[in-house]
């Protein structure tokens, strides 16, 4: 674990735990202190009902991070499952590749609008919608990887030894693509958060009584012309910071893993060269 991985990770964990610790009752309507600009007492100012924007923003981030984690896990799982299925038979593979192309042929946001329209919005609609729109890229990567892996001698051999398909999946495929699953998951996460905020902002996502960032920002639209800039500015900045943290975390983990894989490939490469020149046995 390098510093580049640990710092964003710790910051994110601190941010998430503080937002969990905030009780919903602490965000109270206090009409005496409404529409206050940012001050020491209210770091992010207060809204038209006197609610503290700092607490509301943190609460919104909790929701965003939670939804981001859930959907990233779900779409990574969908991606893995579909790529496993595509190794079973060529026809299934074609269908899945076609499905990937089909989903990529519509703008993300349009698909999201359609799915949450079908499911009637809300938490369930957002989570399912996000999970169903973020799997294509990871499926593409994993599919290529697994199709190669399937032809490897040791995987073929365990099939010949009578191991079942799902045994191979669990003992050969999963360990092999675990790094890609992790990186894929971490790359989906910031996208999912961004799209959650966007779809909620448009009115298709979470309902208006949830403390989501998208809701806060769409409410702030009505107060912009009266100069209450803090309503929109700070929640957006915090969202941006969370996304940046996760992006940098994902990139450092990806770099670390890629370096390891390159290193492995290098060792393998030199080892095979070595053995090829040393063992000139008639069998090889």
């Amino acid at each position: 674990m390098t510093k580049k991985v640990m710092i964003p990770l710790i910051l994110l964990i601190v941010l998430y735990t503080t937002s969990i610790l905030i009780d919903k009752d602490m965000i109270q309507v206090q009409l005496l202190t409404k529409n206050h600009p940012p001050s020491l007492e209210h770091l992010f100012g207060t809204d038209w009902l006197g609610r503290d924007m700092f607490l509301r923003t943190l609460k919104g981030l909790e929701l965003s991070i939670g939804i981001g984690l859930l959907t990233a896990v779900l779409s990574t799982m969908i991606g893995f499952l579909l790529s496993v299925l595509s190794t079973i038979h060529e026809k299934i593979d074609q269908v899945i590749s076609w499905l990937v192309d089909l989903f990529l042929s519509l703008p993300h946001l349009v698909t999201l609008i359609l799915i949450s329209f079908t499911l009637g919005g809300g938490f369930k609609g957002v989570v399912i919608g996000l999970a169903l729109t973020h799997w294509p890229q990871i499926t593409r990567v994993l599919r290529g990887e697994l199709l190669q892996l399937k032809e490897m001698p040791y995987v073929q051999l365990s099939g010949k030894f009578g191991q079942s398909f799902w045994w191979k999946v669990w003992h050969h495929y999963v360990p092999h693509v675990l790094p890609q699953l992790l990186v894929g998951f971490m790359l989906i996460f910031p996208h999912a958060i961004l799209h959650e905020a966007s779809i909620t902002f448009l009115g298709f996502g979470l309902s208006a009584d949830e403390p989501a960032i998208g809701i806060i920002l769409s409410e702030s639209m009505q107060y912009l012309t009266s100069g209450m800039w803090w309503l929109a500015f700070f929640p957006g900045v915090m969202l941006l910071i969370v996304i940046l943290l996760f992006q940098s975390l994902a990139n450092s983990v990806k770099n670390d893993l890629e370096r390891d894989i390159q290193h492995e490939a290098f060792i393998e490469h030199s080892a095979t060269n070595h053995s090829a020149s040393e063992n000139k046995s008639p069998y090889s």
Binding site: L224, W229, A232, G236, L240
Partner: peptide, 23 residues
């Protein structure tokens, strides 16, 4: 560029609206 890739587009729009239209 990396900063922009993480920025919610609609939030940027809100900021521009505030700066150029309201102020």
């Amino acid at each position: 560029c990396y900063l922009l890739l993480s920025t919610p587009g609609f939030w940027l729009g809100l900021l521009l609206l505030m700066i150029f239209s309201v102020w």
